[in-house]
Design a protein around this nucleic acid. Structure first.
Lengths: 195, 195
DNA sequence: CGATGTTTGTACTGCGAGTACAGACTTTCT
DNA sequence: AGAAAGTCTGTACTCGCAGTACAAACATCG
């Protein structure tokens, strides 16, 4: 895969709603070409096919998320505070690009089939959270849990499911602001379900 | 779609590992026919295509889960106890049929595009949990949370992510027993991450 | 036993992914 | 400047595979 010019990368975003809506399988290359304005021949000049186009866009987003998460991790405060900051960041970036977020979540199978994407996904979601859980057990701001990986999965799972629901919801209905959503979500995850 | 004979439904299960591994997109109808032993012409006699075959299998599993969940809900005990029973049931059924579980989770987008499947998914996962959360707030065995839907999403999210990881994990590695997994997961979800 | 439905093999059609390639245009090098 | 190498895109093509057509064998049932 050749280095993709920023211009083209940006144009490709326009095809995302289409892909999110009908799935990559049902989205024809010509549709992607037409909607994005990038000629089909040019697409094949840069990518080897549909799969690679989508993988490229997803990887791009995951990189952005892990970058931002790293920043949030580096701030001051207890592990708990920074965990909340990280989760908020993840949610914000997913919601800001709804279509890509929906595709990411709706197509976890595709991601799990690509080692590169698995790695990016871990870097964006698992690793930062898992590190913070360990840190939190150290500085006392978080409970020591038996299985930290499961903790990060719980968070990741609730994040993506929340997003999925806001994304499935017809666009005409009002969506909760990411901050409210993130707040409620953290409330549940942090305090648990027991009284 | 005609009523599918039990025999054929059962044979189709054999094609699931294939679909889980490479995705429906990459799985050819002829492969499904060969692996399952159901002739291609017969497949098209009952189904309108690949999509419908997979949808049928998924719906089948979701129905089984919601049936079992309903049973677990009907037992004695506090809402908390029954919630744990329900979650254990969900995990058990997903793990017992790894391939289908993996497909279900890896292809949430497909599900979210089909109203029928959304409904089955809700019946299997959301509705029972959400009801129990409300009940639990009533009988005092669970905390009153601001957004019950979010509670059920958190649980669903952590369940499927845990499954996804056990499924992605190379088959040669030892998998945690569903009971242990469920136990750890409930520990996190119930008690939360705070000390 | 006729009628209606099931099952399956074989042969076919057609869509759309991906390829080939030539020509225009741009950048880089000498 | 001018050659060389790389970028971009239109057009026309191939070909794999999903889905269709259909006929013949077989079952079921009234």
């Amino acid at each position: 895969m050749r280095k993709v010019p920023a211009q083209i990368a940006s144009q490709l975003q326009q095809a995302l709603p289409l892909i999110a809506e009908q799935g990559l399988e049902q989205t024809k290359i010509d549709e992607i070409a037409d909607t994005s304005g990038v000629p089909k021949a040019t697409l094949y000049y840069y990518f080897s096919g549909k799969e690679e186009i989508l993988a490229y866009l997803i990887e791009d987003m995951l990189t952005a998320i892990s970058d931002q998460a790293a920043i949030a991790m580096g701030t001051d405060g207890t592990a708990k505070d920074r965990l909340e900051a990280v989760v908020m960041t993840q949610i914000r970036l997913l919601v800001e690009n709804r279509a890509l977020g929906a595709t990411l979540i709706g197509d976890l199978g595709r991601i799990s089939r690509s080692p590169g994407l698995i790695q990016s996904l871990q870097a964006a979601f698992y690793t930062p959270v898992e590190n913070l859980l360990v840190e939190g057990a150290g500085d006392g701001s978080l409970r020591i849990i038996h299985n930290p990986l499961l903790g990060s999965m719980t968070i990741f799972g609730s994040v993506i499911m929340s997003i999925l629901v806001t994304v499935i919801t017809p666009a005409d209905e009002e969506i909760e602001f990411p901050d409210d959503l993130a707040g409620d979500l953290l409330d549940v995850v942090m305090k648990g379900l027991l009284p």
